[in-house]
């Protein structure tokens, strides 16, 4: 596979309060086969501003993919997910939940809110890279669907 597989760069919104995790994600995406622009916000409120293109994010693009951490300051990831999935303009954006815990409750709640995917953040870098890989695969599945017919 080459980077040219997908022509245009996609916009990814990463909602992650942990700078370390955010950096790891950026590092991983940098090496990704997909051309992408990673936008990072630190909390749920800012994520919603980004999505609604408000305030300093007035010029923000509509993201093609949201990587959403569940445990966020100010506005919780679950609330963000709920808002996204109930907004007619936003609900088609695929959301991948990134979280530290494999807590079943989180999983269930997330699925009740129609998250598209759920991924536990692994502790091992190698595994983390696999996760990024799986996001790529997921994305390709998504984008393939409309075109693949």
């Amino acid at each position: 596979m080459s980077k040219n597989y997908v022509g245009e760069a996609i916009d990814i919104l990463l909602v992650e309060d942990n700078a370390g995790d955010a950096r790891l994600a950026k590092e991983a995406m940098r090496d990704s086969k997909i051309r992408n622009t990673l936008h990072h916000v630190g909390d749920g409120e800012e994520a919603m501003e980004f999505l609604y293109q408000k305030g300093k994010h007035a010029d923000a693009p509509r993201p093609d993919l949201i990587l959403l951490d569940l445990n966020l300051p100010r506005k919780d990831g679950r609330a963000v997910l709920e808002e996204v999935k109930t907004d007619d303009n936003l609900k088609r954006i695929p959301v991948v939940i990134l979280t530290t815990s494999s807590d079943e409750q989180d999983i269930l709640r997330s699925y009740n809110l129609h998250a598209n995917c759920y991924i536990t953040k692994p502790i091992d870098l190698t595994q983390f890279l696999k996760v990024v890989q799986s996001i790529e695969d997921f994305w390709l599945t998504i984008v393939k669907l409309p075109n693949g017919r």
Binding site: N18, G20, D21, L24, N71, T99, T100, S101, I123, F128
Partner: peptide, 13 residues
């Protein structure tokens, strides 16, 4: 499960 693992992940990753 959540908070203790994060620093670990940082260290490890």
């Amino acid at each position: 499960s959540h908070d203790l693992q994060e620093p670990l992940r940082m260290v490890s990753s």
